[in-house]
Simulated assay, not measured.
Amino acid sequence: YTERSLNEISLGGLLVAVVLRTIQFNMTRMRDKYLHTNCLAALANMSSQFQNLHTYVSQRIVSLFNLLARKHSKTLDLIQQQSKQQQQQQTLTTNTSNDHIFNEYVQDLSIIEDVMRMVLEIINSCLTHALRHNINLIYTLLYNRDIFDNYRTHASFQDILQNIDIIIIYFAEKVDKLEQRSTEYVKEALEMGAKQFPLDRLKKFPELKFKYVEEEQPEDFFVPYVWTLVYKSCNLYWSSESILIFKQQQSFISQ
């Protein structure tokens, strides 16, 4: 990180920050579904053990959901626009083309919703297993609670957001009673509230556990992929047409 100095961050917190940065970079630049699926699975597996998350890390977790929410809203708009165009167009060829575009948008929306759901599950897992030890995350959720407004009645998020809302409402009431609203006083109130919070009010979800399942002959993908990265990143000139392994990769993809 070059844009800020991260003081007093634990090794675990730094690891979470790096994985979150990787996910955000992948979403905006690379769009590699394989990469973000595995990164989210790694975060999910660790989420029940998150403790004393750094303020910056807490902000990045919530920021990731906010980024996804904006992409979700944008994709919904594109679907609505495409639907209107389909209604206006009459020719068969145009309708076929529009159907393809429409289906791509719908597929993108489904993927975004799956990722949003997993981010919420990570937040919920962290809070239900270690609420007292994640005051910074509670503070960040309170500060950004408006980002959940459009999804509380959404079928894909409703159940998991009920837990998060219970926590937000409980701690918001604690903060509302404060005469002074400085960060120090607010966090002190959150710490006291966390000790008294009745965890039995939260709905229990299965513990997040993802296991990497290796496909048969994974080298068919990984070896060409790694060498493609080497080819693109090094400063040596190689003729791509002469590299047989790239041709093998193309053959593998086309199968």
Results as ranks from 00 to 15, higher is better:
E3S: 14
L6K: 07
E8P: 01
L11D: 08
L14N: 05
A17C: 03
V18P: 00
L20P: 01
H36R: 15
Q51R: 15
H54T: 05
T55W: 10
T55Y: 14
Q59K: 15
Q59W: 11
R60A: 08
V62K: 08
L64M: 05
K71Y: 10
K74F: 14
Q81G: 04
Q87T: 07
Q89K: 14
Q90S: 11
Q90L: 08
N95K: 15
T96N: 15
I101H: 09
Q107W: 00
M116H: 02
C126M: 05
N134L: 04
Y139N: 13
T140V: 14
L142W: 03
Y143H: 11
N150I: 01
Y151H: 08
F157E: 04
I164K: 00
F171P: 02
V186C: 06
M192R: 13
G193I: 02
A194D: 01
L199E: 11
D200C: 05
F205P: 05
E207H: 09
L208A: 03
F210H: 08
V213I: 14
E215A: 08
E216Y: 11
P218S: 07
E219V: 13
D220P: 02
D220H: 12
P224I: 04
L229F: 08
Y231N: 11
K232S: 08
C234I: 13
N235W: 10
S239V: 03
S240H: 13
S240Y: 10
Q249G: 06
Q250E: 12
S251F: 15
